[in-house]
Design a protein around this nucleic acid. Structure first.
Lengths: 218, 218
DNA sequence: CAGTCACATGACCGCTCGGTCATAATCGCC
DNA sequence: GGCGATTATGACCGAGCGGTCATGTGACTG
């Protein structure tokens, strides 16, 4: 967790630091991210980082938590309050999740890296926490869906959650491939929504259609 | 590609080198893998590696190609020759793929790392080639399935391939989580099939069932 | 004005890395 | 045995890393 010094920082300086750090961890995975580049970008001395955080890992943890919290909040705030069925709930959440990723490519890329980083022993715990949070969220959705009768009662809940999770995370790559869009470029360029809502909706309709009825004919 | 010197090596020495390198790249992703550790493990001088390959990346490319080729061959050799429907074809390929992963955890982990490593600019091309090969394979399956009438004709082929790909790759994590199995441990311990064929079959039945009929009730 | 305290600084440390190269050992052939 | 070609070696290089710490700075306090 951040040291008190960090929290006492003038808001503007703190914001600039977080932005630069976010950028660095969005552009590079944990190991490749460089504390030196962060301080160069923000124009402070290297030692300052260690006045703010206990080290690189501590900073990373803080950023991942911040990004996850921000994204979840963004989605939750936009979820329709009326209780539709499972599939439209999932569709809505995924839609707003993707919208968030477009508008905040740095957060999105950071979370993407964190998701696929069980390799490094240090970051394994961060990855696991992130995955656990997503799984818990999806499991709640699935259980409600089963209870409501939207989903078959005989499905393997864990496998269903895993499949949903993977497909949702992979959406980023799929959208990138389909629409020739690179999140990495977006991190440099800042926000901007390069994929229209209609295109995104079409993709999600397709995905939800497969989830709902499967691939088989008839 | 390997230099002539590498190909002239006594088979036993070459095998020991490949094994050690495989191990290193299975235990660590590209950046974290260390040439020094490889030479220590195999008991040769560091300079020798650069007599065999043009560098770390060249060695990595060679190993990934080798692993991918070996795995594809393993699967193809075990595919039933009679032409069943799409789902049993996919099931068979995935089953034998998983079996391969269990019996050759080093290959499997190397391919896993290679799959999720578009971050490093150098390895992006290797990842892309690997993904392209899997996609081509799956696309062939899907197209045949559509032609045969196993699959709905109105599905988005690319998305279907992407979904199949992600779910298949993620199987590794899912099996690991469900059966408390770690591929990393298996790399150390060598082969051994820690998950029985029945357990694997049950998981695949579930997965194929969802792919076939979806999650919706009725 | 002196003293205190929070914060900023950047030279420096130790380490690991991929890669090099002059030299030495080994092999194959006549 | 001798000789050229091939292969093996490991000390060494330059670079980058995370992290440290003695010193400096500036603002608030009594």
């Amino acid at each position: 967790m951040p040291k008190p010094t960090f929290l006492n920082l003038p808001p503007d300086k703190r914001r600039r630091f977080v932005d630069a750090a976010l950028n660095e961890f969005a552009l590079h995975d944990y190991r490749a991210a460089s504390v030196g580049r962060i301080v160069d970008a923000v124009g402070i001395a290297k030692g300052s980082v260690y006045q703010y955080f206990d080290g690189k890992l501590d900073l990373y943890r803080y950023l991942v938590d911040l990004a996850a919290e921000t994204k979840f909040r963004h989605i939750d705030a936009r979820l329709a309050s009326d209780a539709p069925d499972f599939f439209s709930q999932y569709r809505q959440a995924t839609f707003h999740g993707a919208r968030f990723d477009f508008s905040e490519p740095s957060y999105a890329s950071l979370l993407y890296h964190a998701t696929y980083e069980p390799s490094a022993p240090e970051t394994a715990e961060v990855s696991a926490r992130l995955r656990a949070a997503s799984h818990a969220y999806l499991l709640g959705l699935v259980d409600a869906g089963v209870a409501r009768g939207d989903l078959r009662a005989d499905i393997d809940r864990d496998m269903t959650v895993y499949a949903l999770y993977q497909l949702t995370v992979a959406l980023r790559d799929f959208l990138g491939a389909r629409f020739g869009f690179s999140f990495e470029d977006a991190v440099h360029a800042g926000a901007g929504s390069p994929i229209g809502d209609q295109d995104l909706s079409a993709v999600l309709d397709e995905l939800v259609g497969v989830l709902r009825h499967g691939l088989a004919l008839g």
